[in-house]
Design a protein around this nucleic acid. Sequence first.
DNA 1: AGAGTGATGGGACTAAGTCTCATCACTTAG
DNA 2: CTAAGTGATGAGACTTAGTCCCATCACTCT
Lengths: 191, 191
Amino acid sequence: MGRWEPDAPERLVLAALDLFTEQGYENTAVAQIAERAGLTKSTFFRHFRDKREVLFGGQEVLAEMLTSGIAGAPEQAGPLAAVEAALVAVSAGLTEERRAHGPQRLAVIAGNVELRERDALKMVGFSTAMAEALCRRGVPELEASVAAELGVLAFRRGYHRWLENGGDFAEVARRTLREVRAAVAGLEGGE
Amino acid sequence: MGRWEPDAPERLVLAALDLFTEQGYENTAVAQIAERAGLTKSTFFRHFRDKREVLFGGQEVLAEMLTSGIAGAPEQAGPLAAVEAALVAVSAGLTEERRAHGPQRLAVIAGNVELRERDALKMVGFSTAMAEALCRRGVPELEASVAAELGVLAFRRGYHRWLENGGDFAEVARRTLREVRAAVAGLEGGE
DNA sequence: AGAGTGATGGGACTAAGTCTCATCACTTAG
DNA sequence: CTAAGTGATGAGACTTAGTCCCATCACTCT
């Protein structure tokens, strides 16, 4: 399978990350990314659906982990316990290599609307994936949506913390989800 | 102000909606939309940031209504009561004319990833707008985010119901938010 | 009538994204 | 050891989104 210089996708990701950081996302052409990676525009689009996607690769895998995490939670677990299982399960996909470029990647995304847009879509994907998995466990549709939304919120916050402080993502995510649940309780209690 | 044939933006929206429905979003060129509206490509991009935006116009106004709804809620109101005020306030922006093309618009959006992506971004915008408005009321940041997220969920579901059944949006939204709160309670209680 | 203003038309230009075909590195059967 | 096969890449044409600049036109006000 691997011919020529191996790992074309990874080389493209790294080249893109550097160029986006150096000169900004919109000032960087796909051809330029490909050139720095020793490839061509054709090859770039063979590996990535579009220019944005070079920063969001492998998220389908994470969504898959979320759903299987929920599916694999104990029978008697409630929706939020299942969501916790999902967050724990996804930690297997958050590799140390992924953490290395995380902050740089987040900075680039934060600086561009198109990229924030793609990020929003990915988060919606996570949410519906979890909600559907919860429904398959017999959770009513609305409760599933609420639990999934809270799960995504915890995931986002946990992910940021994990990038800042490191450590085990499963641990961080568990703690973050607990805080979200506390906030929910405070919401209902405080009226 | 109005010269030539008036209401260029509205004509563009209607032309786009028809063409997207007839032949699909990706099979429709901007030049074609402009032509059907009796205008040119230049004018299209003068009124809309990009091709997607022709289906999402005026949402900044809605976000504005959400924030001012929250800001205008009674002092002693809790976060979720403020969110309810936001949803009630936004009903002023959901005109009957908007409802007329709602289903067609939703169908087009549902059929295209780029458009779902833009929709996701708009919802994130609503969420952060509400969360920031809640923070300005002194609500802790995490609770504000949770409440805003629940508010967006209620807004989406209420919007769909409103399109299907009509009636007063404020009424529908209030009922939907109540259901979301019940689901949240069921989530915490059932474990 | 003439200057000013704001919206439009037109056309050139860049870059994203698609498509097709040739080519090259490497594998495997004979 | 060679020749066919396979999969990834290169090359280039092509369409369209989106930007820019400038001329023009409709209408207003003096």
